[in-house]
């Protein structure tokens, strides 16, 4: 977040009719109050939480996708590579509710294969695997919000 963005948020809060807005990012927390501005650095966390209070409850899983993430047995934890979300948005395991998930636990993937979609404001962004290997674990429920850099999949490299 740069100064311009912070200034825009300050302006936003000053005209929004609210007393306080809190934003948590990977490496900092920003609290804007009507009568005081406080920027606090915090230690990076694995899964940054969204602004202020949590948003609504997760959506129901898309029919074609498994109801809950599952792990494959017999993968060495220290050898695994994490595919992370490059943006804030909603995680989808398939391109639409009537099609199968892009990948399931146990699937072999090649570098460049689409593994999921992250959607924000009806902009659907296909996320590719950056490594070749086997999907060991799906870390996020279908149709739920994800944060920047949030781990999505564990892959055992080929």
């Amino acid at each position: 977040m740069d100064l311009k963005e912070i200034q825009a948020l300050i302006k936003f809060v000053s005209t929004a009719g609210v007393d306080e807005v809190e934003i948590n990012r990977k490496d900092f927390k920003l609290v804007i109050k009507k009568n005081a501005i406080q920027v606090t650095s915090v230690a990076p966390v694995a899964m940054p939480q969204p602004i202020a209070l949590p948003a609504a409850q997760p959506a129901a899983a898309v029919a074609a996708a498994p109801a809950s993430p599952a792990a494959a047995p017999a993968a060495k934890a220290d050898n695994l590579i994490t595919i992370k979300s490059p943006m804030v948005g909603t995680f989808y395991r398939s391109s639409n509710p009537d099609t199968p998930a892009f990948v399931n636990v146990g699937d072999e993937v090649k570098s460049g294969k689409v593994v999921c979609i992250i959607e924000a404001m009806k902009l659907f962004n296909e996320i590719e695997s950056e490594v070749s290997g086997r999907i060991v674990k799906v870390l996020v429920e279908n149709a739920t919000p994800v944060e920047y850099d949030q781990p999505l999949f564990l892959v055992e490299p080929a």
């Binding site: 977040m1 929004a16 009719g17 948005g89 909603t90 924000a120």
Partner: peptide
């Protein structure tokens, strides 16, 4: 509640019941 706008991540900032919540598309 009131729509306050969207944040840089495109989430809707909704002021309801004396709090502001940031909703992803599809969550509201």
């Amino acid at each position: 509640g009131e729509i306050l706008g969207v944040d840089p991540q495109g989430r809707l900032l909704f002021h309801s019941d004396n709090r502001v919540q940031a909703f992803h598309h599809g969550m509201i």
